[in-house]
Design a protein around this nucleic acid. Structure first.
Lengths: 153, 153
DNA sequence: TTATATAAGACAAATAACATCTTAATTGTT
DNA sequence: AACAATTAAGATGTTATTTGTCTTATATAA
């Protein structure tokens, strides 16, 4: 495993929506990108993955944008991350037994399996509601969107 | 983080030495490579890293090869892996705070830190002595080296 | 119908992982 | 001393993955 930048962007994206759009209002892609310091076109792809995973909703057209499809209390870090990078694993052996002889009976492999389960559990215990309480996700403290909100031109 | 193939090879290499060379006898690079199914030239580089980390000793010249520099009871998975892939971390933020604003006060970051510590602890608890007891590291069950041992030519 | 948004996927660039090759250097053996 | 066996060191090449951008299409509100 490895939290790729895409995974990190996804977390920021969801944090942004949880904060600004939790009441069901839509946040424009552009604003999410600015908030999370995410290249806009890259965000588009990430959003699509999150949408396919049922985590966010994408609204097209004028006044379109993104919004959470799941309440923050029910959304965990693990879900968001695995939506982007696939199911977490630490080494090949665990996921592709062909890649190594002895596969199952391997003592080392067992350690990896255990470590991986533990990691996934840890991430599954953290909801975005919890994160919101503790505030700020790799992001400026000050209230977001405030100067680019609503009115451009 | 992610256990790269190099990391996996390193583990196999050490397992091979722990099994065959634990009494202090030297195992030839060629044999380690065959045992662990490791491309020989690649093994050379991995061995050099293990050697620099003080985990194995490299003996040059005719009848040269590798041997463990540390008793298997004192050698952990974590040490071997980090000798190859560097200190384990799960995301950039944790290691390079510049890579993201808000750094320290970040709730998400704290989760990563915790998960990472846990992972490292798990790996630090597993010694190669323990692994040896449980036998076989991604490797054939049958006794190793037996047909290529000692006498070529 | 037009302006504002995002979708979708092709494309390009950067990085990292994996592997090999070549030219030394080292050591035991004769 | 010379030779054979063996690894060192590092340059180089290949492939895969990640990250990012661009273009063309599509959807929606006004």
């Amino acid at each position: 495993m490895r939290l790729t930048r895409a995974g990190e962007y996804a977390v920021r994206c969801v944090m942004c929506l949880a904060r600004n759009g939790s009441a069901g209002n839509v946040v424009r892609k552009h604003d999410v990108a600015a908030y999370g310091n995410i290249p806009p076109h890259f965000l588009a792809k990430i959003a699509q993955q999150l949408s396919r995973a049922g985590i966010i909703e994408i609204l097209q057209g004028a006044r379109g944008g993104y919004r959470l499809a799941v309440p923050p209390e029910k959304l965990t870090l693990l879900e968001v991350i695995e939506a982007i990078i696939g199911e977490i694993f630490l080494n090949d052996c665990v996921v592709r037994p062909e890649s190594c002889r002895a596969s199952s009976a391997c003592a080392v492999n067992n350690v990896w399996l255990q470590a991986r389960d533990q990691l996934r559990q840890t991430l599954a215990q953290v909801t975005f509601a919890k994160l919101l309480e503790e505030e700020s996700c790799c992001i400026l403290q000050s209230s977001p969107l405030q100067d680019k909100a609503e009115n451009t031109l």
